[in-house]
């Protein structure tokens, strides 16, 4: 039950064309170290399913994406993710734009093993036009009641960032909101977690700590120790998001040369080099949790 591996081991298990769910929410708790390892890899034609933050734009910038299914793609204080915007306007990838709640319903249907979830969400709006593959269904209990049938969103793999994990894949997630990490885990064939802290065993937690587990170890396949691995997104209990860095990244949008420079400066040489280029671990740990 030792599920530990490193970034390259985890990403080597992925294949071109896979459907990859990414946990977190916008610029919050994204498994960015795993995303950076994808940027360093030869992977391509990925289908990304997400409440999107910078991972969507970075994967677009690197040409890794064939399709994105999303409830939104935003950096919060930068409301529109800059590279995602460029890629959308250039029409370079296939889009499945969903109501935020429909994404939840699709993941839950996949987790429950049913083909679709009936809902009123999306009816009367452009959802059915911009997603022609989504259909309606008549209630078997009331022929006058037409519902939208949100298709299940099964994932080949989910990438999820957690606060603590042990080698068995027991995890703890700090923060005020679980977001939908539990549904991403449930909808996925395989789950890879990156973790701020790797501990020998989480088997002696007290109750309140054990309740910080969002999914059980039985769904976790790989554990990667990735301290500061959510940077530049927020990692509750550890560091805030890095808006200065996100702006530096955003300024490369649409400019292949600037993006290549950004990759050389931060990404290409691995995570140790990444942290050093940002001024060291202490500088990241001192990033304040933002105020709303």
């Amino acid at each position: 039950m030792d599920k530990r591996t490193d970034l390259s081991g985890a990403i080597a298990s992925l294949r071109d064309g896979m459907t990859i769910g990414v946990g977190g929410w916008g610029p919050r708790r994204k498994p960015m170290a795993l995303i950076r390892e994808i940027l360093r890899s030869d992977l391509k034609d990925l289908h990304v399913v997400t409440y999107g933050g910078p991972e969507v734009g970075m994967l677009c910038a690197a040409g890794k994406v064939a399709k994105v299914t999303y409830g939104f793609v935003s950096l919060d204080q930068i409301p529109l993710e800059p590279w995602y915007r460029r890629a959308r306007e250039a029409g370079t990838f296939e889009v499945r734009e969903l109501d935020e709640g429909m994404l939840l319903l699709g993941l839950r249907a996949a987790a429950e093993g049913v083909p679709f979830a009936p809902t009123r969400v999306g009816l009367g709006s452009a959802i059915l036009e911009i997603n022609p593959e989504i259909k309606t269904v008549v209630s078997p209990y009331d022929a006058g009641d037409v519902l939208l049938a949100m298709p299940a969103l099964p994932l080949d793999v989910a990438l999820i960032h957690v606060s603590r994990s042990d080698a068995r894949g027991n995890t703890r997630t700090e923060g005020n909101d679980p977001y939908f990490d539990d549904l991403f885990a449930g909808a996925a064939e395989r789950v890879i977690v990156s973790t701020e802290e790797l501990v020998d065993s989480l088997s002696e937690s007290d109750g309140p700590d054990a309740r910080k587990s969002l999914f059980h170890r039985g769904v976790v396949d790989m554990v990667v120790h990735a301290p500061l691995g959510a940077h530049p997104t927020l990692s509750h209990g550890f560091y805030g998001w890095d808006m200065a860095h996100l702006k530096e990244y955003g300024a490369t949008a649409g400019d292949a040369e600037a993006w290549a420079d950004f990759v050389t400066k931060y990404v290409a040489d691995g995570e140790d080099s990444y942290v050093a280029a940002l001024g060291g671990a202490e500088a990241i740990r001192n990033l304040p949790i933002p105020v709303f």
Partner: peptide, 14 residues
């Protein structure tokens, strides 16, 4: 490109 539909479809029908 703007924000995407976000929660508008579900909000407005609910």
């Amino acid at each position: 490109q703007m924000l995407g539909v976000r929660g508008f479809p579900g909000n407005s029908i609910s």
